[in-house]
Design a protein around this nucleic acid. Structure first.
Lengths: 139, 139
DNA sequence: TCGAATTCCTATTGACAAAGTAGGAATTCA
DNA sequence: TGAATTCCTACTTTGTCAATAGGAATTCGA
């Protein structure tokens, strides 16, 4: 599994906020209700520093979250990496690929190629693309 | 993580067998020694039905394993799927993609596309390609 | 026929992360 | 003042990964 519920929920809530923010804020209560997931768990995800950096929050009544940038300026890969920490497909690549044996390893280039293919794909889709359901021809 | 040690070890041992089988059999003891990993753990991996189906085994002294087919007839994707069970990147796709909400889900097509990109890549590389170190231009 | 080397089979363990729950403090608005 | 929100920390439960362990069955050479 390369994307856990953390990443999926993060992506969903970003999209939900994008869709419903208008010129105000979207509360976790509303968003959780719409998505039929636990508000408490969404809280855990949105509290991740890399995730909350992508948002503007406001406490108190009628508070909530809105996107810091416009939906077209976030890629799916960016959101997933923020929530998951990293989305590298194999531990050899972790921490920027600092495996000890990567020189002797005949398999290492495969993992590099895999990582590239995955990131290229995910970074080629923006939140706006998803909202527009830009469709089968792009996704 | 999409590929755990199970998949990595499975791939390594398949390559090791391919390289050393000649016209005989490769024992786990030798292979484990060469790869500097636990023979007992390799045993666990090779015992997985989908993995052992790709090999021909022979018990007893001077026994071991050899490939059932030629290296060019195995793809990396095939080996990894055998060892890991599946290499789908997100649980929504598990069991052939039988998620309940996939109709309403605006994100589902992204996971489908991701899965496709990953499998296309991994199924485009054979064990022979790796052995030949066919190199950066293909991998 | 014996003994060494192997595959085959089942159980067990320790560590860690994922998924979610819980309770309450601080903030903001009408 | 009170309602609704974000913010913060801690806890629990469950499952999987990675590995270890011990022994049964098989196969060969000497």
């Amino acid at each position: 599994m390369i994307v856990s519920t953390r990443g999926r929920y993060a992506l969903s809530i970003m999209l939900d906020i994008a869709e419903h923010q208008g010129d105000g804020y979207v509360s976790l209560r509303d968003s959780a209700q719409r998505q039929k997931v636990s508000k408490k768990y969404l809280e855990q995800i949105i509290i991740i520093p890399e995730v909350s950096e992508m948002l503007v929050s406001k406490g108190g009544k009628y508070g909530g979250y809105r996107l810091a940038r416009s939906p077209g300026e976030y890629t799916v890969g960016e959101v997933l990496r923020a929530a998951e920490g990293s989305i590298c497909p194999v531990s050899c690549l972790e921490g920027g690929g600092v495996c000890n044996h990567k020189e002797e390893c005949s398999v290492y280039p495969i993992w590099q190629g895999l990582d590239e293919v995955i990131n290229n794909y995910l970074d080629g889709i923006t939140l706006k693309d998803v909202l527009d359901k830009c469709g089968k021809e792009k996704i």
